[in-house]
Simulated assay, not measured.
Amino acid sequence: MAKWNAALLQPLERAGLNRDRRRILYAFLAAILLFAVGEIVHPGFASPGSIGAIVMVASFVGLVAAGQTFVVLIGGIDLSVPWVLNGASILLVTSSLGQDDRAPWALLLTLGMGAAAGLVNGVAIAFLGVPAVVMTLAMNGIMEGLTLGLSGGLTCGACASYAPPVVADAVHGSLFGIPSALVLWLVVIALVSLLLSFTTFGRRTYATGNNPHASYLAGVNVRLITILLYVLSGLFAALAGILLVGFGGQASLGMGDPYLFQSIAAVVIGGVYMLGGRGHYLGVAAGAVTLVALVSVLLAMNMPDYGRNIIYGIVILLLLLLYGREEAED
């Protein structure tokens, strides 16, 4: 089996497709395949309008997954994104009261809250040695408690406020015929890709994920890198919360819950090595589109919730097994 796999991969390697590039290609091919299957199951599924709607929804997943990518690249994980996102959406509407003149500082406050949550996560993980799973899960609980307590379970007077018109217009607007939220995601894809591929920060991130001890001996400030990556994860979760409340108009409880599984699933589908050190955000972006396309295909097939959850889990396990075998063979 190993010899057969090696022979199958040789043409791809000769074409310049190393392991990371192959995984990006797999993610894009999976998205294309799902659109084809969806068109067969439900004619019109692959129409430009339908594809645009799916990619639009994928942009929200992709933004949260951007932060998740950063921490997974060093072998970490961020389980606090659901309530950082949810808290950000509620903080935006309650601090702005739906008024444009209050929007600038409300946006800064909301992004600052996301960064602060990430900072606490990073400091506890880097300096106190708290496992990332434990720390970020605890932070998720803290953020849930603070959000529910301060908002009275979303019953406070300001909680009924809408997103400021400038935020809503920005999310629903378009640039050269492309939805603004999608334009923002394309900018994020470009910036994150450049940051990871062509900067010292990116090289140090990969080095930390591959071997933190060796990176420390080579002069990399591993603790600082860890903290900055968790701050970025908190920022992206808060940014997604801002865009979601701008898209929907109002905040609601539980709106961040789906994004924990989806952000991790997008990272896995995109080929990022869960133990750190390998992977690229371009594959994660394709993974986000693939995941949303899969959800849409299953909905078109009238698949019940429990069936969709089973299939999600099977897909994740199969990919982890496939990529794990590939790691072992290389």
Rank of each mutant, 00 (worst) to 15 (best):
G254Y: 08
G173S: 11
P11T: 11
V245E: 01
F127G: 07
V84L: 07
A160L: 13
V289I: 15
F28P: 04
I316Y: 03
L128P: 05
L85G: 01
P258I: 09
A160S: 14
Y306C: 09
C156V: 14
R308C: 08
R22G: 09
Q10H: 13
Y273T: 12
V41P: 00
G141S: 14
A126R: 00
A288F: 04
I189M: 07
L148P: 00
A126P: 03
A300E: 06
E327R: 15
R14G: 08
G177H: 07
F201E: 09
L108K: 09
L107V: 14
V220Y: 02
V61Y: 03
G75P: 01
Y26C: 11
N210A: 15
T110F: 03
L299H: 13
L182C: 07
E326H: 14
G76L: 05
R203A: 12
L232D: 01
L224W: 13
T226I: 05
F176W: 13
S233T: 06
G75V: 07
N302F: 13
G276V: 06
L79E: 03
A286V: 08
G112M: 07
G256R: 02
S96W: 02
A124Q: 01
V268L: 06
Q262L: 12
R14V: 13
L298D: 04
R21P: 00
R23L: 14
I24M: 09
E329S: 14
I74K: 02
V315N: 03
G283I: 08
M113K: 05
V171M: 06
H280V: 12
R23H: 10
A168R: 12
A53D: 10
N140Y: 04
F176G: 08
S161H: 05
V183Q: 03
L111F: 01
I314H: 04
D330I: 12
F70Q: 00
L243A: 05
Y312A: 10
L317T: 13
R14A: 13
A6T: 14
A115D: 05
A293T: 14
G283K: 05
I54L: 10
T226P: 03
A158P: 04
L8A: 13
H213K: 14
S50K: 10
S263L: 07
N309G: 14
E329R: 15
G248P: 03
A106Y: 02
D305S: 15
I227A: 01
L175E: 06
A240S: 15
A103T: 08
F201T: 13
Y26N: 10
L128A: 15
I40R: 11
L12N: 05
R308D: 06
G149I: 10
L92N: 02
R102Y: 12
V57S: 14
V84W: 02
V120G: 03
G44M: 06
L294M: 14
V120P: 01
I54M: 08
V130K: 03
S193Q: 09
G276C: 06
Y216R: 15
T110G: 04
